[in-house]
């Protein structure tokens, strides 16, 4: 498990403050982050692999400052986006997975072997040579996962990975999130996805308002909805 530390992190865009003075230490295997639209959840997790740099404060992964060692951190932290369409870079399924392994000094045979293994793990083998953009939404998200996991990151950050999926595919992705051996940090609006997680953090208007076991955090979030 990676040890992810936020120290007095704040972020603002112009005069709009998105995150206020967040201090967190994330070490658990499965961590859920919930909160309303625009509460700052996405901004928070984007800081873990340096897609965003905080206005003030520091984020570090295993002691490495993300702002300074973004490249090393990104090798450890894989990121899954809400819309897999934007994550697919190469025209065919197999090529997209193999793309992750470029520039890593692997032999073509090793790349082919790892790609095939990743496609097999996610049930995409029969689509290996199909155009990636013709897959269904669920398959695209599986492809995005395969393309991230093939690099063997220690941690996976997923920003609403099930939001665009139908119930069956959402379930499939949630099941994976619950069983992956990697450390998993998931931002979601599907509350049942994080019910069995080790820790759930509730963000509201840029601050942590609840942090703890799923039961307590989910109860706090529901109370917030009624308030």
């Amino acid at each position: 498990m990676s040890s992810i530390r936020f120290e007095q992190v704040s972020q603002s865009f112009g005069n709009r403050t998105v995150l206020r003075d967040i201090t967190l230490h994330l070490t658990e295997h499965r961590i859920g982050i919930i909160g309303a639209n625009g509460s700052g959840k996405s901004t928070l997790v984007r800081m873990i692999n340096g897609l965003m740099t905080p206005t003030s404060g520091t984020v570090s992964v295993d002691g490495q400052n993300v702002a300074r060692h973004a490249r090393e951190v990104r090798r450890k932290v894989g990121f899954i986006f809400t819309n897999p369409d934007n994550q697919i870079v190469m025209p065919t399924v197999q090529e997209d997975v193999a793309f992750t392994l470029r520039r890593r000094g692997l032999s073509p045979a090793e790349i082919a072997r790892r790609t095939a293994a990743a496609l097999d793990q996610f049930g995409l083998s029969e689509h290996a040579e199909h155009p990636a953009h013709r897959l269904s939404g669920g398959q695209k998200q599986l492809l995005a996962l395969a393309a991230v996991l093939v690099a063997e990151p220690a941690t996976i950050v997923a920003d609403e990975p099930t939001t665009l999926l139908d119930a069956r595919n959402a379930r499939r992705i949630s099941d994976l999130m619950q069983t992956l051996p990697q450390q998993v940090i998931v931002v979601t609006h599907h509350l049942n996805l994080v019910e069995d997680f080790d820790r759930v953090i509730v963000i509201d208007e840029g601050s942590v308002v609840a942090d703890g076991a799923p039961q307590q955090s989910l109860a706090a979030y529901r109370a917030l909805l009624l308030a």
Partner: peptide, 15 residues
């Protein structure tokens, strides 16, 4: 979409 694709490229190590 271009912005999002750029973010995805960065996240995948082409930074």
């Amino acid at each position: 979409a271009a912005d999002a694709l750029g973010e995805a490229l960065i996240a995948r190590g082409l930074d």
